[in-house]
Write a protein that binds this DNA or RNA. Structure first.
Lengths: 252, 252
DNA sequence: CTAGAAGTTGACGCAGCGTCAAGGTCAAAC
DNA sequence: GTTTGACCTTGACGCTGCGTCAACTTCTAG
């Protein structure tokens, strides 16, 4: 069986122009070219086209696709590679769905995006980090804790948080050093604030991992764009980080 | 907090050129432009960029993204739309994975990649549907049946098929209803044509599953893009479907 | 035999940047 | 103070993967 360019294009859901383009660039030649110059495609060509479209959908460039098709000793290897690529893509999207969904839930539950639990890095936006660093349970417990709070309690927690941030900003403005007694007292308050969140190492009295978490959190304030603006500017964030890490090293 | 163009680019995993491009096309202006012309981005701009990149990953064009961001009254609506789009994309990939996986299995079991019982929906392109709906054996038998035919027989079958399609197109053009005697006679012919394929419920006299298959086939003519253009246009396909399903309900 | 549907080869256009080119600016070092 | 090197700026051209005429030929159906 053979198809004309249009027949194949319609079947494949592409345009005849695309097929001519693929011919031009040497990606897919018609199986036969009539004396009139017409292009005809046989099932083999169709199979090749299907593979091309598959790879194209994965965002591969045409030259890259051509290379794969050329290098491919075994068709099955190519297909297996395809499946792997597709699965990876699917997983990536799955992660993104979860991420967006959690952001949405956070919005709907009345929590403002950024701030609040965010300061602790324990809201949904950090789910992956939290889980990978401190375990699934820490995330679940922390999350449940937050969602189990009443609106008044949430408001109170928010107030606590804002006070803490204000204390940090004040310390920065005061021009003292991160290791100064002033800064260290704020750091202590920060750690205590953290210990209110059940499921965290700090709340559970795990000293080793608690230290680790405080240090890590300090880094996040500086490096993670999601904390942007929290402590006025970069200088503020680095101050908080340095103070927290000094506290973790010397006083925990 | 503020970032320079490079800092933001690195964080977001894009190039500074891209950010300048987004500024140029009015998609993302920096929150502040220094007296020296330097671009500076604040957290709000970062959030907007994140949404832009999300949509871009879904294959949306920059103008479309701009429109979405402009029209968006409620952030939650935007997020929900995102989730829907992402889920759709994930499902599409999931279907593709299954499809490729089946192709791979077909290859390993020694079957030829694609041929042309296609019109009946019984070629390899439909292998997964065929197998999942009517069993592995139906596929194998149908496949063997096709390959066992001589070229002349294949040509004859193709002629039969084309005649059938022509009859449908004529019925559509005639302007009659799908339940009319005319249309129903063509449907009867369609079913008889189907019964020629061994291994199908219709050929084996399984009335229940035969009805099911005819209905299903009707849906495929309409819903499956691979049948696009088979019956002239969408109107034709729906006509065929309605006629077949009416036939299946009342006369089988 | 003629209409119109479908085929052909150019050629230009467009998005979304990459990639120089040709300079200004800034922070730190000397 | 100046120099160095990293970073910023605005053009401007290039590239990919086609869409979209244009101008012409060929096939198919009435």
């Amino acid at each position: 069986m053979e198809w004309t360019i249009q027949e194949l294009a319609t079947r494949a859901g592409i345009s005849s122009r695309t097929l001519r383009h693929y011919d031009r660039v040497g990606l897919l030649a018609p199986s036969r070219v009539g004396a009139n110059g017409y292009r005809y495609y046989n099932p083999t060509a169709v199979a090749r086209l299907q593979r091309i479209l598959l790879m194209r959908q994965l965002g591969m460039g045409l030259p890259a696709i051509a290379e794969v098709l050329a290098d491919e000793v075994d068709t099955r290897d190519g297909l297996r590679a395809h499946i792997a690529a597709l699965e990876e893509e699917r997983d990536r999207i799955e992660r993104q769905i979860r991420s967006v969904r959690h952001t949405l839930e956070a919005l709907q539950s009345g929590a403002e995006p950024r701030m609040d639990v965010m300061l602790a890095g324990f809201n949904d936006g950090y789910k992956d980090e939290v889980i990978s660093r401190w375990g699934e349970r820490a995330f679940q417990v922390g999350n449940d804790w937050w969602h189990g709070k009443s609106l008044d309690q949430q408001r109170a927690w928010k107030q606590d948080t804002e006070d803490l941030v204000a204390a940090w900003v004040a310390a920065v403005k005061a021009g003292v050093s991160p290791t100064s007694e002033h800064a260290q007292s704020v750091a202590a308050r920060h750690v205590q604030w953290l210990s209110q969140i059940p499921g965290t190492p700090t709340a559970e009295g795990d000293r080793e991992r608690s230290i680790e978490m405080v240090k890590c959190l300090g880094d996040m304030y500086v490096d993670d764009p999601r904390f942007a603006g929290m402590y006025d500017d970069a200088a503020g964030a680095t101050f908080v980080r340095d103070a927290l890490q000094a506290y973790a090293r010397t006083r925990m």
